[in-house]
């Protein structure tokens, strides 16, 4: 485990939002990609924020819990129902100064950050530019593989 780093387990995909991306479009992307959040980048792919599913839910339906108290998570449905909130822009709801991680962070450091900050997805940056993301599933997969190798 100590030898593994973000670069070994990250997802090398640059799907990202812009400040002026419509919230409706962000919801469509979350639904299509089955992700829980996406980085927001400027014209040079510099990470300037992060938009999570919680940000979208709070924008559309601040109290959208069903009777069991569980969030309604069907983003396809939310995108269709968005109405006025759909015209809102990512910049209005994103988290600015979002946490990022670099490729050389080891798995232990990454796991700690995710747990202590309660984060599911982190943008991976090189010189501030987006080069991919790393999520909890990536971490779990890596830990599982290490488990198999050591047993």
């Amino acid at each position: 485990m100590p030898d593994r780093h973000v670069r070994d387990i990250m997802t090398r995909d640059l799907t990202a939002l812009s400040r002026d991306t419509a919230l409706r479009e962000a919801a469509r992307l979350f639904s299509m990609l089955r992700v829980t959040g996406l980085p927001v980048v400027d014209e040079h792919f510099k990470v300037i924020g992060f938009l999570s599913e919680a940000d979208i839910i709070s924008a559309v339906a601040p109290r959208s819990r069903d009777r069991s108290g569980i969030f309604v998570m069907d983003f396809g449905e939310i995108a269709r129902k968005m109405g006025a909130a759909g015209e809102a822009r990512v910049a209005d709801y994103m988290t600015e100064h979002a946490l990022t991680v670099t490729e050389d962070v080891d798995l232990l450091g990454l796991s700690e950050t995710m747990l202590t900050e309660g984060i599911k997805v982190l943008p991976v940056v090189r010189d501030g530019m987006l080069i991919g993301t790393v999520n909890r599933a990536d971490v779990c997969r890596a830990l599982m593989e290490d488990r198999w190798e050591s047993s």
């Binding site: 090398r12 995909d13 991919g132």
Partner: peptide, 9 residues
Amino acid sequence: ITTAFTVVN
């Protein structure tokens, strides 16, 4: 390879 595809419906 790093991917940067535009997601279509």
